[in-house]
Design a protein around this nucleic acid. Sequence first.
DNA 1: TTGTAGGCGTTATCAG
DNA 2: CTGATAACGCCTACAA
Lengths: 351, 351
Amino acid sequence: MHMPRKQRRPRSKLSDVALRAGVSAVTVSRALRRPEMVSPQLRERIDSAIKDLAYIPNRAASILASSRSSVIGVVVSSLTNGVFADYLRALHDMFQPAGFQVMVLNSRYSPLEEEKAIVTLLGQRPEALILTDVDQTPYARELLEHAGIPIIQTMGLTDAPIDINIGISQYDAGSLATHHLIELGHRRIGILAARLDSRTRNRVAGYTDAMKQKGLHDEALLEWSAVPSTVKLGGELFSALLSRCPDLEAVFCGNDDLALGVLFECARRGIKVPEQMSVVGFNDLEFAASSCPALTSIAVPRHEMGRLSAEIVLEIIRGSGARPKTSRIDLGFKLALRDSTRMSAQRGLKV
Amino acid sequence: MHMPRKQRRPRSKLSDVALRAGVSAVTVSRALRRPEMVSPQLRERIDSAIKDLAYIPNRAASILASSRSSVIGVVVSSLTNGVFADYLRALHDMFQPAGFQVMVLNSRYSPLEEEKAIVTLLGQRPEALILTDVDQTPYARELLEHAGIPIIQTMGLTDAPIDINIGISQYDAGSLATHHLIELGHRRIGILAARLDSRTRNRVAGYTDAMKQKGLHDEALLEWSAVPSTVKLGGELFSALLSRCPDLEAVFCGNDDLALGVLFECARRGIKVPEQMSVVGFNDLEFAASSCPALTSIAVPRHEMGRLSAEIVLEIIRGSGARPKTSRIDLGFKLALRDSTRMSAQRGLKV
DNA sequence: TTGTAGGCGTTATCAG
DNA sequence: CTGATAACGCCTACAA
């Protein structure tokens, strides 16, 4: 025997409700999960007992007994970045109606925090795990491979997916943005980046190779910072870059927030966009289409990415093991061509 | 007896680890939770057994047995709104180090979805519940009052807190913003709002009363929409308002995203801010200080709100029941005076 | 420092 | 349609 250990009055449980309704505990449980299997009269009595006692089922007990959690674990790199917010919304929109609960943890772009988040989530015995990154720590990878549940790696693309990989080539996207600027006739094309996480690194690599290809590469054109990206930072990085490279003609920004900062900084300095400076963002967040000038950006299909991630997960869970043929799905991206970029006045012709 | 019901290979459990390490299950459990209570040699054997088996404790079982979840439930009205993202970050920063897990659910500004979220969270037997709203459904309120855990209602202020209320007066904030514009000499002051949730309604009420006080009220000056607020919407609402009230001198925007949209729309139409149009935002999001022109806004202490919410919760949990004296804490707000508002040229004097 | 016993609240199974 | 019973995996209390 042992004494009760909590001073808090214990919440009412199944058996309390059963007692009050004059039925057995199982019946109450059934009335909650499969009401059609319980006679209407009993159901009514049970329902009112539940209301009276403000009864709420204990999920822990339920999960333990049924060994099904209905939890979908998600690790995002950031909560403040609009891309992830949109991606999450897509996930919610798919999973909520299907009766699954989305549980989100933030890794703040840190592989170690991501590993911790993965451990935490696996502890919940989730039905699936969704990661907004493709580079996990070896230990995390090991755990994921043993998890026995669908694992989705998104946003980026990898040659060695743990399970299923849905994303876009960040390298190609960086390359496309750069080539767009090159084709407009720009030669001094800078790049702004905050926090070089794996995705950003790939974008920068795409930029760098594109520049090298055309013999335009110059270390001085890269301006980056270790702090999280903000609008303010965009302005600051741009200012720093501009003072180092006064002949700058265009900037490719690692994301739309930075680009917004550049737009404002240009306005402040009286630099006309796109006449004197072409600006390209990344992600195509909501505001990109309605800024002034409207921002040219790389449109990342984050909503479709979320929808598809969820669709595949649900298919696997329900189809009990039917995996998609391809474990690596490239969703592609597009250049959202708008008013912040245009043909260089100096040249006026394609290279 | 009964047959196993799941086809998935069962994850390894405490007893598996114990077997492999040649100790008893409790010892493994202890090695995980209080390593200092286990001898170094055993600890080592246990650790390697854990690694070998990729063992991860089953949280459900742990919660059930200990009746403590270390979960802090949070319901936010939106995941895409910057205010909540910042507030959440503050919560994470406080709770994570303290060993608590923040579990976030989204109510999308709907009281009914909030109620569902509350039920879901209560099912997790959280240690505390934090709500970013003060108006709950009667049933939700009932549940919360019976929950026996600290309940924090934030963002707004209420006369009848369920437990603890930390926030600001949205009414006063709306009033302040309006008075600011009135004092600048503006008389035709419009207001833009998306989605009239309770907080926004209070802000609008603050505006309306302020306008009435000065005899400036005019229904035509209110422009709102039921859809979520976006930058684009800001521009659209502004356009609509302007075509109805061509003599508009200033706009108070329900939030900074709308204000950003107004700024862009003004730029597009060649309306000079603040010379021809004063613009006030709400929330003082990061970009407000670095936009061009810098946006005058209402600075809401969302970070402090999060910090204090967490601090109080932790105090109650650890101090086992020591509640703060006041159950209603008004954190106040400030007018972040910047470049998007200025003295009306027509009058040039205070009213 | 380590092990044994019992129970946490729910669900699956099988019997009525 | 309803009820009895045995798990689910771990933790608290107590004993060794």
